[in-house]
Computed example of a mutant assay.
Amino acid sequence: MYGHSNIQDLLKKVNHDSVIPLHIQVEELLMDIIKLPDYVDGKLLPKEVSLANTLGVSRSTIRQASNRLSEKNLIIRKKGIGTRVNKDMVVTKLDSWSSFSKEMLEQGKTLVNYEFNLKKVKADKNVSNKLGIDLDSKVYRLSRVRGVKDESKVYFISYFHPKVLLKKSYDYSIPLYDLIENECGYYADMSKEEITAIIANEKLSKKLNIKIGDPVLKRERVVFDRGKSALEYNIGYYKAEKFIYSVELRR
Rank of each mutant, 00 (worst) to 15 (best):
Trp97Glu: 07
Trp97Leu: 08
Trp97Ser: 08
Trp97Tyr: 10
Ser98Glu: 15
Ser98Ile: 13
Ser98Asp: 15
Ser99Cys: 08
Ser99Lys: 05
Ser99Ile: 06
Ser99Asn: 08
Ser99Thr: 11
Ser99Asp: 09
Ser101Arg: 11
Lys102Val: 05
Lys102Pro: 01
Lys102Gln: 13
Lys102Met: 10
Glu103Val: 15
Glu103Ser: 14
Glu103Ala: 12
Met104Cys: 13
Met104Glu: 07
Leu105Glu: 12
Leu105Phe: 10
Leu105Asp: 10
Leu105Cys: 07
Leu105Met: 13
Leu105Thr: 11
Glu106Asp: 13
Glu106Ser: 10
Gln107Pro: 04
Gly108Cys: 04
Gly108Ala: 06
Lys109Leu: 10
Lys109Pro: 02
Thr110Pro: 11
Thr110Leu: 14
Thr110Val: 15
Leu111Phe: 13
Leu111Thr: 12
Leu111Asn: 11
Val112Leu: 06
Val112Trp: 02
Val112Ile: 15
Val112Phe: 09
Val112Arg: 08
Tyr114Asn: 02
Tyr114Arg: 02
Glu115Ile: 09
Phe116Ala: 09
Phe116Asp: 08
Phe116Trp: 12
Asn117Ala: 14
Asn117Ile: 11
Asn117Val: 10
Leu118Asp: 00
Leu118Ala: 03
Leu118Val: 01
Leu118Glu: 00
Leu118Ser: 02
Lys119Ile: 09
Lys120Arg: 11
Lys120Leu: 07
Lys120Asp: 09
Lys120Pro: 02
Lys122Val: 07
Ala123Ile: 03
Asp124Thr: 02
Asp124Trp: 03
Asp124Phe: 03
Lys125Ala: 15
Lys125Leu: 14
Lys125Asp: 13
Asn126His: 15
Asn126Ala: 15
Val127Pro: 01
Val127Lys: 02
Ser128Pro: 04
Ser128Glu: 05
Ser128Val: 06
Asn129Pro: 07
Lys130Ser: 04
Leu131Asp: 00
Leu131Gly: 00
Leu131Val: 04
Leu131Trp: 02
Gly132His: 06
Gly132Trp: 07
Gly132Leu: 07
Ile133Gln: 02
Ile133Leu: 02
Asp134Ile: 11
Asp134Cys: 11
Asp134Leu: 14
Asp134Asn: 15
Leu135His: 12
Leu135Pro: 03
Leu135Asp: 06
Leu135Arg: 12
Leu135Val: 09
Leu135Ala: 08
Asp136Asn: 13
Lys138Arg: 11
Lys138Trp: 06
Val139Lys: 00
Val139Gly: 01
Val139Ala: 00
Tyr140Pro: 00
Tyr140Met: 01
Tyr140Asn: 10
Arg141Lys: 15
Arg141Gly: 03
Leu142Thr: 02
Leu142Lys: 05
Leu142Gly: 01
Ser143Trp: 00
Ser143Thr: 11
Arg144Val: 04
Arg144Thr: 05
Arg144Asp: 00
Val145Lys: 05
Arg146Cys: 08
Gly147Gln: 00
Gly147Leu: 00
Gly147Trp: 00
Val148Glu: 10
Val148Lys: 11
Lys149Ile: 09
Asp150Gly: 02
Asp150Asn: 13
Glu151Met: 13
Glu151Val: 14
Glu151Arg: 15
Ser152Thr: 12
Ser152Ala: 14
